[in-house]
Design a protein around this nucleic acid. Structure first.
Lengths: 331, 331
DNA sequence: TTTATGGGCGAAAGCCCATAAA
């Protein structure tokens, strides 16, 4: 049975987190009560939920992995933090008639009944429709040389790596004992202009990764795709015999130049996300939703379009600073 | 009742895919039978499952979006292809007692029964435990200026964009009618050394993205995180007062130089994935699984470690050519 | 709690749910 949490009272922050005075209902009991002992003592045997953000007290970013960078024979103990967080809206599936969120039930189509987790094994499909059951202990025999280490294997230039290789980004923070080695790696990378290529195991998956300096004194790690995970662009069909006129290229280059700017990411916002939120808010408050008009079609001839684009950009520039460039076709 | 598929026979490849001669059991019927007509005709009314990879036959990359790049008033119609594919091993959940793959059934915990798809709506959780139902038509009122267009807003230098911004990569291929404009954009980007920053809607999500030249004559698009989705590395705790010795930096730089190489991605392979596959293969063939030994511990003192590392690298280099490491590269 | 991963789903890609880890 699920019960809800009641936190009535905070007390002195102490060490890692904040202790609580009272807590009435039970919910879940952590396997590793490392951060909970004060609380548990205070409650003398009452099993309690502590929500993690209360436990970690104020700490906005939580380490999701700990280990160390291995750089030659130098070891740099680090914590890993997610560098990005998706803000896209997510929805639940709702049962129309009663408004309840849908749940998934695991069923066996052969036995035609619900199946509990302890009746389930992991199977690898080695041949269409044929599965071998793989147990945890089978995989234990794999040499885990890189467990808990970010193993640097090479140093290369960042510009050499095509962005298609980049997967996820993580900030690395130094552990207390590794502050100096961390800074040393940062400074040395900065000085040489190199980035480190590394191998790292994160939760039973081996990643190719790179470690590079970020900002004033931080390190960031990108996990990377293996080369066989990057597809060959050559497979995309393209006509070989297309010729361009000198003049077309010249105009296109001119157009690019006139639209060149510095990369200032704060300029770009997710307008669709905002619009969705507005609609949702309106719906929650029972308002009407207005429908705006559509947009016009675009010019088609290449040279005409290039000329018209250039003229448009020029005209807008003449309007002077402070004017934001508008969409071409809407007008 | 669910039935399985039996494909007994392939026939002449024809147009988009490959048609099949016979198929005995029914399974699911696609809403859009565009690619199925030959097959369906051949079977005269028998409803059949065609797994997609059979249908698409030899075509390895399938376009997952079509639209056009809008560059000033120039329009470049393109198809979009995933540039990467994860090769990590995946497993199915298997019912232990009968070996059947598990399926999910959508249930309503309140009504306590199975729920069909047409009884399900999308709900946004605007407050803990409270949902507003959002219908497709609610979102239609959002101005979809960028629908089906990759709307170029700026041109910037690739080097200005920190890799943490990159999310997913997609190759763009020209539509038949847009070969010339496609090549023009490619050439102009190549010539100016710029990349295009764009906005694009993909499946009711607006993305920030960049378009850049790739290889000989292809364009690639990376979707990007919005700035508010990139966290502030400054939040990572770090000790301010750490000092490094000149000598330590010198040695670390030397170590990096001696481990510098060109980025040759084909050097790196997923050994863990391979090891897993070996074990699976062994299991399929009924072999024994061997357990290899562990590895040694590492040196701890920073200066000692740097020295020892340099010596180690030097020694390996003296072993002569054929060794993986390359000489320290330029600047 | 958040975050990542695993896994199923109407093809796929990405969305969704559930669970594990920290």
């Amino acid at each position: 049975m699920k019960k809800s949490l009641q936190v009535t009272n905070y007390r002195y922050p102490l060490g890692y987190g904040t202790s609580l005075a009272t807590c009435r209902h039970s919910y879940f009991f952590p396997k590793n009560p490392r951060y909970y002992y004060i609380f548990l003592e205070a409650l003398e045997g009452i099993t309690c939920l502590l929500t993690w953000n209360i436990i970690t007290g104020g700490e906005r970013m939580r380490a999701l992995w700990r280990g160390s960078i291995s750089f030659g024979l130098v070891n740099v103990p680090v914590k890993m933090y997610a560098a990005t967080e998706r803000k896209s809206l997510s929805f639940r599936q709702i049962h129309k008639t009663c408004g309840t969120p849908i749940r998934y039930e695991k069923v066996c189509p052969f036995c035609n009944r619900k199946v509990e987790d302890d009746e389930i094994a992991r199977g690898y499909e080695y041949e269409k429709g044929k599965f071998v059951v793989i147990e945890e202990k089978d995989l234990e025999s794999i040499p885990d040389e890189t467990t808990r280490t970010i193993d640097i294997v090479d140093f290369v230039d960042l510009a050499e790596i095509d962005p298609v290789y980049f997967d996820r980004s993580y900030f690395l923070g130094p552990e207390e004992t590794g502050q100096k080695a961390y800074l040393l790696l940062f400074e040395a990378l900065k000085k040489t202009g190199k980035i480190a290529i590394a191998k790292v195991m994160i939760r039973s998956k081996q990643h190719l990764a790179c470690v590079r300096p970020y900002g004033e004194n931080r390190l960031v790690m990108e996990t990377m795709f293996y080369p066989d995970e990057v597809r060959d662009a050559g497979e995309i069909p393209i006509s070989p015999g297309v010729k361009l006129h000198e003049n077309e290229i010249k105009m296109a280059v001119q157009l690019i130049d006139s639209l060149s700017a510095d990369f200032r990411p704060e300029k770009y916002t997710d307008e669709y996300r905002k619009a969705m939120l507005d609609i949702i808010r309106a719906k929650v408050e029972g308002e009407e939703i207005k429908v705006p008009p559509g947009r016009e079609e675009k010019v088609v001839d290449l040279m005409e379009a290039l000329k018209a684009s250039l003229e448009m950009v020029e005209k807008e520039k003449r309007k002077g600073p402070g004017v934001k460039r508008k969409k071409a076709a809407t007008s």
